[in-house]
Amino acid sequence: MPAVDTLVCFALYAANRTTTQAYRALLEPFDLTYPQYISLVTLWVDGEQTVKSLGEALQLDSGTLSPMLARMEAAGYVTRTRTSRDERVVTVSLTERGVALREELAHVPRCIAAGAGFTDADDARELIDALHRLTDAMKDLRDHPDAVLASVGAPRRTA
C-alpha cells in the first residue's frame, strides 16, 4: 500500500478528484463544467442573486467566477445585469434555457448517488453532515493554527 493511502488528506483529495471526474462524464454531453453545474443548482434552488453572494455560496473568487458566468451567459443559460442603485453590483439570473436545463439534468444527482452506493437520502445526509463538520474543523485549524499546534504539543515554527 502506498504511504499516501494512509493519509486522510489524500483520501479526501482522491475522492474529490474522482467525484469531479464523474460529474465531468455526466455533464460533458451538455457542454457544462462542474462549477457551472453547481452555479446552476444554486440559482435553481436559491434564485437570482448577486455575483458576490453566488461566489460566497460556491466558495469561488471573482477571478474564477466572472469568466465562468460570461461563458454561461454566452451559452444562453444566465443573464448578468448591473443594478441601478449601485453599478458595482451585478445580479445573476437564469434565462428560460437555464431554467429548462434543470429538467434535462435531473438525472445527475441520482447518478452520483447510485455511483456512490447510497441506498437512500439518509446515507447521503450522513456523509454531507460529516463533510460539513470536517470543513468547519479545517477552517478552525486554518484560522487558529497556534491553538491546534499547542493542543497536540507541536512546536510553532517561526520564520
Rank of each mutant, 00 (worst) to 15 (best):
V148R: 13
S66F: 07
D61Q: 14
R71T: 10
A116Q: 13
I128L: 09
R125T: 12
L7V: 03
L101D: 00
T33Q: 06
D146H: 15
A25C: 11
E56V: 06
S66W: 04
T119V: 13
L7C: 06
D122A: 14
L141P: 13
D140A: 14
L65M: 07
G117A: 06
R157C: 06
A121Q: 11
A116H: 09
M72I: 03
L40M: 05
A137L: 10
E126Q: 15
I112G: 04
G76Y: 00
L27M: 05
V89E: 01
P145D: 02
L69P: 08
F118Q: 01
A113W: 08
G98H: 07
V41G: 01
T19H: 04
F10N: 03
A70G: 08
P35S: 08
L43Y: 09
R88I: 01
A150M: 14
L40C: 01
L141A: 13
K52N: 13
R17N: 07
N16Q: 12
Y34Q: 15
L65K: 12
E126M: 12
A14R: 04
M72N: 01
D5N: 13
R125L: 12
R88M: 02
A11L: 05
G76Q: 02
D120V: 06
V89T: 14
A100G: 00
A14D: 08
A147M: 12
A147R: 15
T18M: 03
E56P: 04
A74K: 13
T20I: 11
T83R: 01
G98Y: 09
A114H: 13
G63I: 10
A150L: 15
T135I: 09
Y77E: 00
L101W: 03
M68N: 10
D123G: 08
Q36W: 07
A121L: 09
L149Q: 09
A154W: 03
W44T: 09
Y77K: 02
M72H: 03
M68G: 06
V4N: 07
V78A: 02
T50K: 00
P35G: 09
L134G: 03
F30T: 03
Y34E: 10
D143Q: 15
I112L: 02
F30E: 11
V90T: 12
W44V: 05
T6W: 02
T81E: 01
A114K: 15
L127S: 00
A114E: 12
E87C: 00
L149H: 08
L101M: 10
Q21A: 15
E87W: 00
A15P: 06
S53C: 05
D31C: 02
F118Y: 11
L141I: 15
L149A: 09
A100N: 04
D129L: 15
V45E: 11
G47N: 02
V90F: 05
R85S: 12
T42P: 07
D136E: 12
S62N: 14
P2Q: 09
S62G: 13
